[in-house]
Amino acid sequence: MRTPDLNVKSGIAKQFSTELSLKLYERICLVRWFEKGLIEVIKKKGEPKFVYLSTGQEAVAAALSFELRSYMIFAQHRAHDIYLTFGGNPVMLRDELMGLPAGTSQGKGGSNCLQYHMNGLTMFGHHGLIGENVPLGVGAALASGRKTVCFFGDGSAEEDYVLAAMGFAVTHKLPVYFVCVDNDLSILTTTDVRRSWEITKIAKGFGMPCMDVADDPWSIMHYTKELTENLPALINCRVCRNNWHVGIGTDGPPEWERHAMVKQELIKLGHKQAIDEIEDRVQRSMENLWKKEL
């Protein structure tokens, strides 16, 4: 059932330290204000045309960036949120999106091919075929024995090679965490039109620990702690993305606004002043970052 409180643990934010929760909020803001700046650039210049925006689903990556810091990352085509929250350099991301030599792949990859191999982060670039990163990540875990996270969407989950790679990871007991970022859409086709099964039931069938949860970041951190005790495992995170599959357009307001819900939760916990300061700081920083392109 797709709801904003699906398997969300009531009052769970209190179990996490203030410091962590505020950092979490900062990472969420980072994605939103980075992409706000990018959208302004696109409105002004018409370029870059092919951007895969993350705003609306960024709480998932922000939460996981605390729990999976040492993991090798095999991200999907939509990865601004993963890149930024796990510690990728925003300036290099900007330059990559603008096709500049100082970009993460010298401007050759663009929005859906992000990689980052600096500052202790190992994030491999995607090439645009949805779900291709899943067998790659499984193979990398097989060959290296290193903990690996594979991100993919509810559409990618239907790719035969994604399912086969999950099965292989179970057979070989590989240390892989599968993260399905589920917005219920493949472009604009809803999941119920495309299939009758659920990825968590498939995971269970494979014998993998799994959880289906809305994008409440504290719940995602909580379940991830548990699930990663026994890899391979899968988490399906229900999200509402703000923008189109590709480009900056929107189809009306999202079903729910996790950023606002997180903000509300932090205000309830008495952190209004702190989060206002954080958001203001991040906003100014990102506006400054994009100034050169505007």
Partner: peptide, 25 residues
């Protein structure tokens, strides 16, 4: 030796992932 299940496409992806780790499969 890694015996793959009958997973054409995924199997090749697993080999490429292993290659990215320097195992020259």
């Amino acid at each position: 030796i890694v015996e793959l299940p009958m997973t054409d496409v995924a199997g090749a992806g697993i080999a490429v992932g292993a290659a990215m780790m320097g195992r020259r499969p």
